[in-house]
Structures are given as structure tokens and as C-alpha cells.
């Protein structure tokens, strides 16, 4: 499934979607950045409540397909700019990380 399709199915808001056709092959959740970077599979959807600039760097280095910010967490403007520059897909959902992952397990 592509990130754009996933976004529609989750009812997510597209915060930054430079690569809508990128395939999502799994999911991962966590808020400790080093932990996520060491373990999130490439091409996965990463569900987190962290929204600082470093999230964009970790998403880029771990090569995840998209970041999903749960609980309507807002991305600060610097992070958004960096996500656009780095080509990182970022979605936002109202649900918590648990509910979002439960939804993802049925979709992916």
C-alpha cells in the first residue's frame, strides 16, 4: 500500500507528503529516537508522539516510509521545513498510538 492510500484509510491529515507513492510494508511505534532508529524496519510507518526536528533526521536515517504523529501532535515549523527538504512523509492522526497501530495491523 502507498503512503497516500494509507493516509486516506486512516483518515489522516497530510502534514507533508513529498513521496505519496512510497510503499509501506510494515509499522513501528516508539518515542525514544535511538531505540526507533536501531529497530524500526525500513519502509515502515513510524507512529510517534515526538515531533521535534530530530524526528525528521531519524525518519530519514532509518529510511521509514512515513511518520504518523498520533494524538494530533503538531510539528513545529522548523521540523516541517526540514521534512520538506529531506522528502519525509509526515501524517497526523487524532487517535493515540495504540489505536493507530491497531488500525495499521488491519491495513498492512
Amino acid at each position: 500500500m502507498t503512503v497516500a492510500e494509507l493516509s486516506v484509510k486512516l483518515g489522516a491529515k497530510n502534514i507533508c507528503l513529498p513521496s505519496p507513492e512510497r510503499e509501506v510494508t510494515g509499522a513501528y511505534t516508539g518515542d525514544l529516537l535511538s531505540w526507533v532508529m536501531g529497530r524500526a524496519p525500513a519502509d515502515s510507518a513510524w507512529v510517534t508522539i515526538m515531533s521535534n526536528l530530530n524526528v525528521v533526521a531519524v525518519a530519514s536515517l532509518a529510511d521509514v516510509a512515513c511518520v504518523i504523529l498520533s494524538e494530533n501532535v503538531e510539528l513545529d515549523s522548523d521540523a516541517l521545513k526540514k521534512a520538506e527538504n529531506e522528502g519525509i512523509n509526515i501524517l497526523s492522526v487524532a487517535d493515540g498510538s495504540y489505536e493507530t497501530c491497531a488500525a495499521l495491523s488491519k491495513l498492512i
Partner: peptide, 16 residues
């Protein structure tokens, strides 16, 4: 509070 300090830095460096 920024999401670091999990004690995974050096272990990740070794792992990768």
C-alpha cells in the same frame, strides 16, 4: 525530553 538518552547510542553503533 527530546527523545534521546535511552542508552542505545553506543549499542546501536556496535550493532550497525
Amino acid at each position: 525530553s527530546l527523545g534521546f538518552g535511552a542508552g542505545m547510542g553506543l549499542p546501536n553503533m556496535k550493532k550497525y
